[in-house]
Design a binder for these strands. Sequence first.
DNA 1: ACCTTATGACAACACCGTTGACCTGTTAAG
DNA 2: CTTAACAGGTCAACGGTGTTGTCATAAGGT
Lengths: 233, 233
Amino acid sequence: MSERVVPPAARRRRRPTKQGVVLSEELIVETALRLIEEHGADALSVRRLGRALGADPSSLYRYFRHTDDLMLAIADELIGRTMRTWRPTGDWVADLRDLGLRMHAGALAHPRAAVLSSYRVTGRAYEIQAVETILGVLRGAGFPDAEAVRVYHAFVDQALAFGALDGASAAMPRPAQEAEDDVWRATYARLPADTHPHIAATARHLVADMRRTSYPAALDLLLSAARARLVAD
Amino acid sequence: MSERVVPPAARRRRRPTKQGVVLSEELIVETALRLIEEHGADALSVRRLGRALGADPSSLYRYFRHTDDLMLAIADELIGRTMRTWRPTGDWVADLRDLGLRMHAGALAHPRAAVLSSYRVTGRAYEIQAVETILGVLRGAGFPDAEAVRVYHAFVDQALAFGALDGASAAMPRPAQEAEDDVWRATYARLPADTHPHIAATARHLVADMRRTSYPAALDLLLSAARARLVAD
DNA sequence: ACCTTATGACAACACCGTTGACCTGTTAAG
DNA sequence: CTTAACAGGTCAACGGTGTTGTCATAAGGT
């Protein structure tokens, strides 16, 4: 085995698969994303990906050292897609709000990649570009360097963390999701006011609120606190 | 097979395992937690848990319908442990800050359970108690019902989401963690100022800040925004 | 035309969650 | 006290997973 993975630049001798496909890092990443989009995050395994590509699973290890590596490549592609369609307006709060919602939506569609990219640094091209852009927005808004980094970090992690969780929730089978709803309606909403006064008093809101993601609310809180801190200087 | 899992109340005919252990839901949950604490989250599998208990893996399916079920039981036990040692002081911001940090720490120590409990409702005893308590703190602080629920939701989800992610990060093997650090030092900190001015300007802070969790910062932002909104009424 | 080697294929390994069939000790009823 | 029901433990198997050591071969450089 020794060194399985060849740096992309040195790739030359492309040879078609038994089924006639010419592999490449891009093709693998794209196929992986298509697989996730069409059949859910759980449908992504090395073996299934190989099957979808028309290649032996072990061939993929010529391009990625292990699954994590592949996930990071997917994550970077997702970052790229998110940033590609984003246009800043100059209003930093509105811009970051929009970007946060986009990141969240992207992560939500690809929870497994999101979960990885949230605690891993890809160090790849699109990630670097995103870091530079967001830091630019914050420094442009007037945040001093240390504070800009702190807000950047909290902002990004919040978007990715909520994205990963809401994605996992959305990936649950339909009946399971309805069962969750039922817990709020059947268990929580029926607790007597004398033993659980606060739940009883807010039951109506709980049932309505807990079925949605709380990310937009959390994002607004974070951004408004950051703005308040900026003004306070 | 038909109905494998008997409700805990009806459990009577306990019979020791071949290796002499008498199983129970509590013993299984405790052993699972011990396993995670001692050998990391990846060490928890039905088969390993069976081995650690001195029982056939399939025995566990008499107590839990599937792994998710077990995870939810673990999650509820974690909620219980977190709440058990928490004492409110009456200062709602400080109390929620303390609670948030505790939840985060608990989730961080048990990432797999955290990831599950963050998007699932257990509906079990400890969870209900926690919901009641937190809602009580917020309503006691003066939040109107709808707002209390909104803040509750954002607060809890954020604690769990960050806990899950930071837990996953902490669960990485040591060398991999150092490799992450290196990406910031070697890749980001070396980007030239003319192509990436904002990264170059903040490189020092990035290296220092990105290796820590951003949860405390995010928590403080959330709480201060909530307080501002409360005062604004 | 030859040699190197990148790259695909194959078979195997060790693990995983889950289930159906079986067996046995405990318990409750007669 | 006997007996019948069945909870609950065990066993073997299924189909899945990521990963790797070995081998064959076609592409490219010389």
